[in-house]
């Protein structure tokens, strides 16, 4: 054994000893550390447990139906897909303790205008108003029931079925035009709408009645229809219910 060591230089043996000491110290430390600290799987389990045990604040709509009749009204109206908590805020506590905590009941105009103020970034067809001119200072609930929101007036004939078009047109420059200005509607269309259809304009001269250079109409944007986009029909570029041209 001694011979074996003598074959190596003294310095190498000393360094080797220190190195061994280090390695064994590291191994020892690793050994005495409880495995729970090193075990990745246990950490993952603990995290998942911690995450899943966090408290829920939004109860989900189904819970509301148990006690609140308004739910049945809501589920038939335009707000049918709206969760109760979208407007009333987180209500898990209320569902567990109905008498002690009450969810918010938004009554201000801002609560509705958050979604319904006109914004050019919003999808066309989404019902929007300009809150400055739309019955200012009046709370929305005086005319609209938020659980069954409808326009307070009886819908005009076309709008009843073509609501999306009507809404789009309502914020477009064509808002003043009656549907019948461009479409002739046979009486039968109201009875068997798919068999008898309303007419649609046939050619460029129809739009030209108001928009051509020599049209007598006032304050409409005018173009020379003999040169402007000559080989296309007007509505191939301009959506007549929302003519997006300055």
């Amino acid at each position: 054994m001694k011979n074996f060591f003598q074959r190596f230089p003294d310095s190498l043996i000393r360094i080797g000893a220190v190195f061994l000491l280090f390695v064994s110290a590291i191994l020892f430390v690793r050994f005495i550390i409880p495995s729970s600290l090193k075990n990745e799987e246990e950490h993952v389990k603990a995290t998942i447990e911690r995450e899943t045990s966090r408290s829920v604040r939004y109860a989900g709509s189904d819970v509301c139906a148990d006690c609140h009749e308004e739910y049945n009204v809501k589920k038939l109206g335009y707000h049918r897909n709206l969760s109760c908590e979208t407007c009333h805020g987180p209500a898990k506590e209320h569902s567990e303790n109905p008498t002690e905590t009450k969810p918010v009941v938004p009554k201000k105009r801002e609560a509705c205008s958050l979604c319904h103020t006109y914004n050019p970034s919003r999808p066309t067809g989404f019902p929007q108003i300009n809150p400055v001119v739309h019955n200012p200072l009046k709370p929305c609930v005086t005319c609209h029931n938020p659980h069954d929101p409808k326009p307070p007036r009886v819908p005009q004939e076309c709008q009843a079925c073509h609501a999306e078009i009507a809404r789009t047109k309502a914020v477009s420059p064509h808002v003043q035009l009656e549907c019948t200005t461009c479409h002739t509607v046979p009486q039968q269309h109201k009875v068997i709408p798919r068999e008898v259809k309303a007419s649609i304009p046939g050619d460029r001269t129809f739009c030209g009645k108001c928009h051509s250079k020599d049209s007598p109409a006032k304050e409409t944007p005018k173009v020379d229809i003999s040169t402007h986009g000559e080989k296309y029909l007007c509505w191939q570029c301009h959506y007549p219910h929302m003519p997006e041209v300055e």
Partner: peptide, 14 residues
Amino acid sequence: TKGLLPACVEVCPT
């Protein structure tokens, strides 16, 4: 994990 929707999905009005 409790069968509820994420909060953002729950409240999205559209």
